[in-house]
Amino acid sequence: QEPLTVSMLAAAPPHKQKQMIGERLYPLIYNVHTQLAGKITGMLLEIDNSELLFMLESPESLNAKVAEALAVLHA
């Protein structure tokens, strides 16, 4: 699957942009947090698209945000 790019996103309406990012984000999170993948993905989709694109390419930053989301979820 080719990487999601800014120009690919720009061609879609805003709600579709989040959908496109979510479809990429969900499997990555599902690998680690099967039960909570839907909720974690939903939380992370509130982040700016530019940062989400970066996270898709950066496992370290994605893991950090997932850890933050889990902390909030369990609070």
Partner: peptide, 22 residues
């Protein structure tokens, strides 16, 4: 949104509505 339904769950293949319905 009051936070009761937060966070919204993402499901692959299902159109994402985000916080619009809360």
């Amino acid at each position: 949104g009051s936070g009761i339904n937060w966070p919204p769950e993402f499901h692959p293949g299902v159109p994402w509505k985000g916080l619009q319905n809360i």
